[in-house]
């Protein structure tokens, strides 16, 4: 009876096969073949022996790390203070609202804000500071990327903080801890799962942001994502593009592994 009922679910099964499994297989196949369609490991050897690719990868990881760190530093206190508010669910909605606005529009706003004779520079010159190249710098890339990722970091941290039993906080105070000691010893350790999820959902996309490197970073920062886009849509070298894609997938799996839940503490019994 169960076997025959599989036909009811055929649309979903087809989706799993055609759009989840097949594309990944095709990506891997592309990475393992050359222009002539023959099996080869050359793409990977090429990648590993090229200083440019390796430097680009390290660079991309470094910037993703910075973006994650910046968003974490801004988001954790934000999430904490949000949980202290009375109608925190409403305020949380206001945090999420900007994520519903297309990322391109937000990037577009920053072009206006940061450009040579844009608002920030005019404000600066009003105070007698010489206009400064803000757009197309590494800092502008970091700024805009962090801006875009902040709500995605706040949300999981907020969720884990809200789950903490307020009685534990009371117990900590009862035992003589002040607010800061309670945050350090009880609240932060118990919100680590949220922090891990936040790192995961910010770090991986930060490796692959390509429109922001182009629009805001002025191609000064090349991420793995930029490189893939370049190989697929500009130089049309899909094999190399897929190879970098596989690297990105591996980076993603490694990140997921290190930020998985239950990786509670190093202590063994």
């Amino acid at each position: 009876m169960k076997k025959s009922s599989l036909t009811y679910y055929i649309s979903y099964i087809l989706w799993l096969l055609l759009f989840v499994i097949l594309p990944l297989v095709l990506l891997l196949l592309q990475a393992l073949t050359n222009q002539q369609g023959n099996f080869t490991l050359d793409n990977f050897l090429n990648y590993l022996s090229s200083g440019t690719y390796l430097r680009m990868t390290l660079n991309s990881i470094f910037y993703a790390f910075l973006i994650t760190l910046i968003t974490l530093i801004i988001s954790y206190p934000m999430a904490y203070f949000l949980t202290q508010l009375k109608n925190h669910q409403f305020w949380m909605l206001l945090v999420i609202l900007p994520t519903w606005i297309n990322l391109l529009l937000k990037a577009y706003a920053f072009i206006g804000l940061l450009s040579q004779n844009g608002t920030i520079n005019s404000t600066l010159s009003f105070f007698g500071i010489v206009p400064y190249q803000l757009l197309f710098t590494n800092e502008s890339f970091l700024l805009v990327s962090s801006y875009i990722e902040i709500p995605f970091m706040i949300l999981p941290i907020y969720n884990s903080l809200i789950e903490i039993d307020s009685n534990l906080i009371q117990a900590s105070q009862d035992l003589g801890a002040n607010t800061w000691q309670t945050i350090k010893n009880v609240i932060f350790p118990l919100s680590l799962n949220g922090v891990r999820t936040g790192i995961q959902v910010v770090f991986i996309p930060s490796l692959s942001l390509f429109m922001i490197t182009r629009l805001i970073g002025g191609n000064r920062v090349i991420t793995l994502g930029t490189a893939i886009e370049e190989h697929f849509l500009t130089t049309q070298n899909w094999h190399m593009g897929s190879t970098i894609g596989v690297v990105l997938v591996i980076a993603m799996l490694v990140t997921t592994y290190f930020t998985r839940e239950g990786n509670k503490k190093g202590r063994k019994k």
């Binding site: 009880v186 118990l190 509670k264």
Partner: peptide, 11 residues
């Protein structure tokens, strides 16, 4: 205080 639900720190 010894609390009703103990309130031990799970971490």
């Amino acid at each position: 205080t010894v609390f009703q639900n103990y309130n031990l720190f799970p971490n």
